[in-house]
Amino acid sequence: MSELLKVRDLKRHYEVHVPQGLFGRKASLKAVDGVSFSIEKGKTLGLVGESGCGKSTTAKLVLGLIPATAGSVEFAGTPVTAKHDARWRALRRRMQMIYQDPLGALDRRLPVVTQIGEPFEIHNPEMSRVERTERASGLMNAVGLRPDQAMRYPHELSGGQRQRVVIARALALEPDLLVCDEPVSALDVSIQAQVLNLLDDLRERTGFAALFISHDLKVVRQMSDRVAVMYLGRIVEAGLPEDVFLRPQHPYTKALVSAIPTPARRGKRERIVLEGDPPSPVDVPPGCAFHTRCPIAQPSCRNTVPQLVSSGGHAVACHLVNDGAATAVQAAE
């Protein structure tokens, strides 16, 4: 097993001012609060969770775009830090990122073929103009863009086509790791399928590993070899998609999975509906962060933070599951 990316106990806290009284108060917003995972070569880890649980922050930390408050990221044995020196740049060409909003990621004033060739310009300045254009055209072909679209500007393309441009550019340097932050969330279903299939095919062909982030469980399951579920800055459950989504253990994952309406599930209502909103990451509840909404919370859950305990590749961070009380929980339901 060759671990390409190794993330250990990663934290990112922000100092924020929250309104309170006359002057407000300083507080620490725990965007990411102790996350560990690893991705093997050529494999995809899916990261799901609700808005604000720290998915994008994790992505930025992995790429060294923002400094971590604590913990470490190691890419192919080299630590990734937010110091943007020559070593980081060398790593960075092997790790690329795709964002949700392709229009924001592209330069409005340049034709797309130029933008696809841009990484060569930055990381391989000796390459001739002709070769650069040739390579860019090859990439366009690979992501299913027509040659006549080469000289178009981003706003002259549809959302799906723009995302193809972004993907082509990210793949230009044949990265080992692709970090995808909600790559299809802004797209219509039919286009979403096109882009997901495209990523699938390209991964098959070039063998990149991926950190695939989405709030959509269905999409994450479709794309991932392993998945991790985040809640308030921590991973609460991780494992194979079949284990996590078909046999969820953590009460949060259970609720999340049961909440997904699909055509196939129609009429079979077994939704677990959680009460309330997720707490703010400024006021993470003590103990198990989920205890404020957990339907089976015990008094003890308020005191101790449950650790992510793995058994047979399926890891869960819940006292009731981990203390061998899992059977009792199931009986109680």
């Binding site: 279903v189 039919s190 286009i191 979403q192 399928a193 096109q194 299939n197 699938d200 269905k218 599930r265």
Partner: peptide
């Protein structure tokens, strides 16, 4: 049919999505 086939599912076996070519 295309819309239904383009939708990934949460239960059942994983399958390759069938996308609808082109755009609206």
């Amino acid at each position: 049919k295309g819309l239904i086939a383009a939708l990934p599912d949460i239960d059942g076996p994983r399958r390759r999505l069938e996308s609808i070519p082109g755009t609206v």
